[in-house]
Amino acid sequence: MSDNTWRPTASIAALQQRADLLSRVRGFFAERQVLEVEVPVLSRRATSDPHIDSITALCNGDAAFLATSPEFGLKRLLAAGMGDCYYLGKAFREGEAGGRHNPEFTMLEWYRCGWDDRRLMGEVGDLLGETLGISTVESVSYRELFRRQLDLDPHTASDSALRNTAERHLDLSFTPADRDECLDLLMSHYLEPRMGGGITLLYNFPASQAALARVVADETGRPVARRFEAYVGGLELANGYWELTDAEEQLRRFQADHRYRGAHKLHVYPFEERLVEALQAGLPDCAGVALGIDRLLMLAGGYRRIEEVIAFPIERA
């Protein structure tokens, strides 16, 4: 085995399927007049997301970071008047390795001007349906999924009810620290494995998990994040937002991320103040979504592990 580490871990057939999938994705957007653009993979600014870590590089003698997503670059292009556009290329995340993760992966991210999250969910369903040949699409709110499977309202349940539910269903080595940790545990360990084989579009996330999505009152008057996730057979494929366009709110969220990172002894890197400036200049009303191409390929080809679709995962890179 060790003497064969020069070889790709993916079969030649899988790499041919990859080429075919990339060309179909490009065809999908060409037909819809969404333009392919490039943004930096190497940047002077890191992500502020509390649960995502940037990989640090050295460029011209100073620290630089590998992009964890093309989001900031794409939004700056949108603010500059680019119009509907997408990025299809590499993204990097420190410490993410396993059967469904490789620190270097291929991401598709696209933006639709004048659209909201609901309309974009439809297009995500179309893309997944076309590339996977699946016609079953179910849209369900975050609240409804928790109610159905756990008889629990994720927005209004008490902290202790959430913790009890997590501890009842899972064997944990720790006590969950807060609501979001309980929700993340239940989602990834309990709800995802129970999703059917079709396309599941999950929307209206708790406001505390808004990331860069707008927070708007739902039909019950509760503020929820206009964020959605797409799953196929319980595998998380895409994450989208009705994008935050308010520069001041964006700045507050960056600062809140910094405080969280500081309090949890995580690296605190300079945030992208140019995104705040772009929002000040005016980001068009838009919705955007990022989708993992490697996982899409796993589903398209029936592969169980990510190294079966990546020629040289980090162990061989």
Binding site: H51, L170, D171, L172, S173, D180, D184, S188
Partner: peptide
């Protein structure tokens, strides 16, 4: 198994065999 929701916290879902009892069980770690 490394488990991480895209925007959520990272966990490791681990299957272990107790060498005394032979019992296999699953526990989640941060």
């Amino acid at each position: 198994e490394f488990v991480k929701p895209g925007k959520g916290q990272a966990f490791n879902r681990v299957k272990l065999r107790n060498l005394k009892t032979g019992r296999v069980w699953e526990r989640t770690f941060r």
